[in-house]
Amino acid sequence: MTTYKETFGKLNRAALIPFFVIGDPDFETSLSVVKSAIDAGADVLELGIPFSDPIADGPTIQKADIRALNAGMTVRKALDFIKRVTDYKSIPIGLLVYYNLVYQYGTEKFLKDFKAAGGSSVLVADLSIDDSDEIAGPAKEAGLETVFMITPVTTDERAERIAEKTTGFIYTVSLLGVTGERASLSNMVKPLVTKLKTLTDVPVCVGFGVSSPQHAKAIAAAGADGVIIGSRIVKMIEDNLNDKQKMQSEISVFITQVKSVLE
């Protein structure tokens, strides 16, 4: 298994981290899309387990969640999916999940099974640092890294506590809002990354609204260690539901493009 430390450590550039909803639009298609994203140069994967009520997500990812759920995705199948991905290639996988799914599965068991499937870290979208005990302890026990979010409204006091609890990477939300494509990059990226770099040694990755190679380039230039691209890629799935070949190739081409500006 490749750890974040190894991955971020040996890259002399920002890592490219695409996000996918597991099982969108169905298990097999999703798996081949993710594999081709790896082939096209993804350094780390951020994968989400679909949830009925994703309050941190905009319309694009909401629709992906619904597609995946309608195609029969379950938490157990999502863990199988992760196993299939890590069998294909050893790549760090960060999981994005809503708390109720973890809680119903049983937090400790969930984290253990996710680790066994080859996962690297968990980010619980609706669990703030104040409730991190519900996840941080069991995560450490299971041998997983922790990832927490920092946003433009996070106070310095909270940011420090978050940095302290984070072992994987800090997920920097560069704008106020839910996930979704944006025409321009938030002007908060640079000041946020600069501040976080003074607070912590763990990698600082930026996500939410990242929609083009230009955005990725600017984020890397701001000093970030990783660029997370979600809705822009998920939209390519939505737009090509009737042509899986095209879906896969569009995503591959896009990832290759982003990768080339980061290199």
């Binding site: 609706d126 703030s128 104040d130 946003t151 996070t154 909270r158």
Partner: peptide, 23 residues
Amino acid sequence: MKYKGKFGEYGGFYVPEVLMPAL
């Protein structure tokens, strides 16, 4: 947050980080 907002094991504030300052 000053209080946990718990009623027994129920309640709390299970929200994304971004909403914490407002709460």
